[in-house]
Design a protein around this nucleic acid. Structure first.
Lengths: 235, 235
DNA sequence: AACTTACGTTAACAAATCATTAACAGTTTT
DNA sequence: AAAACTGTTAATGATTTGTTAACGTAAGTT
């Protein structure tokens, strides 16, 4: 199995341990983002995409369980590995043991951690949830190619860096091509909220996207009155 | 494992012991360069490439620990074996025991030394350290060649020694060429933390790298507003 | 010890970017 | 026809970034 491009969120407050783990995992080819406590970890999780989380349980500001709960709100199936002090007889561990999760007791060897990670990733992939299916995939929209991870919209004639919101909206639309994307769904997904002004803001972005995609007449963003928008590509 | 071509820097002031070690190691197929004290050792290290260092701790002019520190400045991951008088209870030993390093107490058999060396080399190769050819590879960026392990940025016209941070940042960018490296990922990877001032510090380094890479107009470091940077090489 | 040098951080100010809001025109529904 | 919704452009203000210089510190040098 290639570890390439698999990104891991490591939340661990012990600086020495975290360095050891991070360096080892990076040598194995994972991308690792390390946070020092639960708050930071949650923040990082919402801003990035990860394939797996490694959470220490005992941490300042927000413990691993609370963090895991928060993470689960956003991402139902992401595998989580807990790091616990040896015989921590906490019932909550059992509560999380289901699904793809696992826990490892300290002290552990880096090899053990690595094996567990591989096992979990394998298991989860088998279970049919390709971890980040669309992660680095480019999306073709008519004559355009859209690379969401690079926020780059390319055609033969032009290349444009999209802003975060532009990119997020186009991603949403292109993932649901020829299907209605509800106003509310878009607003809640991208803006996390839904009120009049945010709605108007989205309309401004729709105008921008229409302009950017104007090179290809087969592409259109159609408004469904009172409902939402649909990105359409003819033939 | 073939010892062929593996070159060892041996720094040991006892002439008899050093001869014994050198001859034994050469018999095993290693290339050995011997220096009589720390100063000589450091000089030799900067002028040549080694796969492993064997340093006596008690030495005139510069002791083994100081030498090791100097070596680490240049080469972060090269394995170091310390030779110590039997039960030298120096805390500093523990400081160095991490990673690929090891220490051997005198007196020791040549066999023991040989086994340790093999074990260390194996371990480090597995861990993918710079012994691993993959990681010692130079990176080509437009007209430039960047050697991360030597922190050296070269073009036809110029050659520049980068500082650690400059080098780390350029490494990260060039490993993800034409892809966005998020601010957060860079900050957490290189600085281990992410706050406002560290972020500003990174911006200063970006400015520096842009200046260094300015000779080749095909190279650019593009800011993706609110997201990160992308090292781009056209054609 | 006093003096350099090198490096990373912080400060300070200029410039650019972006999401939002406003404003007004046009559409669709009831 | 009134009300609600959408399209579009431009103005606004906050945030982010670019850049240079000053600063502090640690190491080496005299």
């Amino acid at each position: 199995m290639s570890t390439n491009g698999t990104s891991i969120l490591l939340v661990e407050d012990d600086p020495n341990l975290s360095i050891v783990i991070r360096e080892y995992l990076e040598m194995e080819g994972y991308k690792v983002l390390h946070c020092k406590d639960g708050k930071e970890g949650l923040d990082a999780f919402t801003k990035n995409k990860f394939d797996l989380c490694i959470l220490d349980i005992m941490m300042p500001r927000m413990d691993g369980f609370t963090l895991a709960k928060e993470i689960r709100k956003v991402s139902e199936f992401i595998p989580i590995v807990f790091l616990t002090a040896k015989t921590m007889d906490d019932d909550r561990i059992n509560g999380f043991k289901a699904g793809c999760d696992d826990y490892i007791t300290k002290p552990f060897s880096t090899e053990e951690l690595s094996l567990r990670i591989k096992a979990i990733l394998k298991r989860c992939r088998i279970m049919g949830s390709p971890l980040n299916p669309e992660q680095n995939k480019e999306i073709h929209i008519g004559n355009y190619t859209f690379d969401p991870s690079n926020m780059l919209l390319t055609s033969e004639k032009s290349e444009r860096n999209l802003t975060r919101k532009e990119s997020a909206l186009l991603k949403l639309l292109s993932e649901n091509i020829n299907q209605i994307v509800t106003r509310e769904f878009a607003l809640r997904t991208i803006w996390g909220d839904d009120d009049y002004f945010i709605g108007r803001s989205m309309d401004v972005f729709i105008t921008k996207l229409r302009k950017y995609l104007g090179e290809d007449p087969a592409i259109s963003i159609t408004n469904i009155h009172g409902t939402g928008f649909r990105l359409e590509v003819k033939e």
